[in-house]
C-alpha cells in the first residue's frame, strides 16, 4: 500500500550556500526502520530531481529516529544570489513530504 511520507514523518529544511539540508523524523519511532528502508538518497533525488541538481547524501541519525539529507546544488546557485522566491529553500521540507512510499 502506498502512503504519503507526510503521514509518517515530519521534516525541516535548512540551508548552507547552495546546499539544502533536509531533516526527516519519524512521527512514531516504530516507523523509523521503514523510513530507513524506503526514504533512500536515491528516492529523495527522484522526488526532488527537478529542484536538486547535484548529489543527495543521506546520514542516518538513529538516536533521533532521523535521516539527514544533504542536497547539493539545490538553491539556484546559492541563497545570497538566487533569483528564486524561496531562495533559502525553506519550503522544500514539504516538497519532500509529498513523496509516496510503499509501506
Amino acid at each position: 500500500m502506498k502512503k504519503r511520507l507526510y503521514e509518517l514523518a515530519h521534516c525541516r529544511a535548512g540551508d548552507k550556500g547552495n546546499t539544502s539540508l533536509l531533516s526527516v523524523f519519524a512521527l512514531r519511532d516504530a516507523d523509523y526502520p521503514l523510513l530507513v528502508a524506503r526514504v533512500t538518497a536515491q528516492a529523495v533525488k527522484a522526488q526532488l530531481g527537478h529542484i536538486v541538481r547535484g548529489t543527495v547524501t543521506r546520514h542516518e541519525v538513529p538516536n533521533l529516529c532521523a535521516l539527514q539529507f544533504v542536497c547539493e546544488d539545490a538553491l539556484g546557485g546559492g541563497v545570497t544570489t538566487s533569483l528564486a522566491m524561496d531562495a533559502h529553500g525553506k519550503s522544500l521540507s514539504y516538497a519532500l513530504l509529498e513523496m509516496e512510499i510503499e509501506s
Binding site: 515530519h10 525541516r12 535548512g14 540551508d15 548552507k16 546546499t19 539540508l21 531533516s23 523524523f25 546520514h59 541519525v61 533521533l64 529516529c65 532521523a66 539527514q68 544533504v70
Partner: peptide
Amino acid sequence: KEQLLYEVTDPR
C-alpha cells in the same frame, strides 16, 4: 529534534 539537525551538513 528539528532544531538539533537544522542546517547541519554532517551530524557526526
